[in-house]
Design a protein around this nucleic acid. Structure first.
Length: 342
DNA sequence: CACAAATA
DNA sequence: TATTTGTGG
């Protein structure tokens, strides 16, 4: 779930077309997981093709990306590689939560409690390697670049931004800020409406832009101190310290400094289950590569239709409008590169 | 979540 | 045109 530090991070809400002409390195796993868990029917059943293969992730990926491209955004997707060893505990925890949710889902369904079944279905959702492969195939047919990270996708995405090859990272999680991404975009969605947890109320959702410099400025901290805040409240690599949320962590960091200085100032931190300096290093020097290429291309309509319509039973007319949007985006990009020379 | 038809 | 509702695969 990433680091829970939202409440101390300044951000601004913008319109979707604020990102016109900008390249955004999207955390593929984060996005696909969201599609897989939310694109479901009332009882929690995901979308499936006639052979019973789940297609929720493909639906979300295709339609949303088409829309982003149409309005002139240049998305690229970054896929996770091997997680650091320190993440294994978190991975095992998540696996267990999913397994238990799956049991609860079946139970709720037997009792005819569809809404409850849906809740557990969302919680039990997990991406298979097949789904990831399908997503890469689809993106390639759409002319959308994707990058295979050696390690964490968010770390690789951040590296791409730091290299100047894209404008910002796209994810619901804040980890990329700790990995050094100067800009993070959340809620990069089309509809702008989301169901509030629990009630049947809907609230307007807008894209949010987080700028690392604004965060540093507001709290008078630096990247190492931001990482220290993360370590204190908990990351994918450690549980954090009980009773310390973002506000207390910020206070501590302002008093003591980065994680090394916090350790030296003793008290409390010794309850940490792993070496905090090791975690800091995972954020400061993550496993990333500069061996990637990012190129947007026109979509291949035949390939897209063969894959989505013939293989996975998508509606031909819907897919065609998606393709038209992608083609409109090609025009946007041509316009953009033309303007650079004027 | 996003699409598209129905409805206001 | 803007919002709601049922469906997509």
């Amino acid at each position: 779930m990433g680091v829970k530090i939202k409440e101390i991070l300044p951000f601004r809400e913008v319109e979707l077309d604020h990102f016109h002409g900008r390249e955004i390195a999207i955390d593929a796993m984060n996005t696909l997981y969201q599609f897989l868990s939310t694109i479901r029917q009332y009882d929690g059943t995901p979308l499936k093709d006639s052979e019973g293969r789940v297609t929720s992730h493909l639906s979300g990926l295709f339609y949303r990306t088409s829309n982003l491209v149409e309005i002139g955004i240049k998305p690229l997707f970054v896929f996770d590689g091997e997680p650091p060893k320190l993440k294994s505990k978190t991975i095992e925890n998540r696996r267990q939560i999913r397994a238990e949710a799956e049991k609860a889902r079946k139970k709720a369904l037997e009792k005819g409690k569809k809404e409850e079944a849906r809740k557990y279905a969302q919680r039990s959702a997990s991406l298979s390697s097949e789904m990831i492969g399908q997503s890469k195939t689809l993106l390639s047919a759409m002319g959308i670049p994707w990058v295979q990270a050696p390690g964490e996708g968010e770390a690789q995405a951040s590296r791409i931004i730091q290299n100047g090859d894209a404008w910002g990272t796209g994810s619901q999680d804040f980890d990329s800020l700790l990995y050094g991404s100067p800009v993070l975009v959340r809620n990069l969605t089309i509809t702008g409406k989301r169901k509030l947890p629990g009630k049947d109320k809907y609230k307007q959702i807008s894209p949010e832009v987080f700028e690392i410099e604004k965060i540093f400025e507001k709290h008078d901290i630096d990247r190492k101190k931001l990482i220290a805040i993360g370590i204190l409240v908990g990351t994918d690599y450690n549980e954090g310290i009980k009773g310390i949320g973002p506000n207390k962590a910020l206070k501590r960091v302002k008093e003591d400094g980065d994680i090394e200085e916090i350790i030296e100032s003793a008290d409390k931190v010794d309850v940490m289950e792993v070496d905090p300096l090791e975690i800091e290093k995972l954020f400061l020097e993550p496993d990333v590569t500069d061996d990637y290429s990012i190129k947007w291309a026109p979509p291949n309509p035949e390939e897209i239709k063969r894959f989505l319509c013939e293989k996975h039973d998508f509606s031909e007319s819907r897919v065609e409008t998606g393709i038209e949007r992608l083609e409109k985006g090609v025009g946007e990009r041509a316009q953009e590169s033309l303007e650079k020379w004027t």
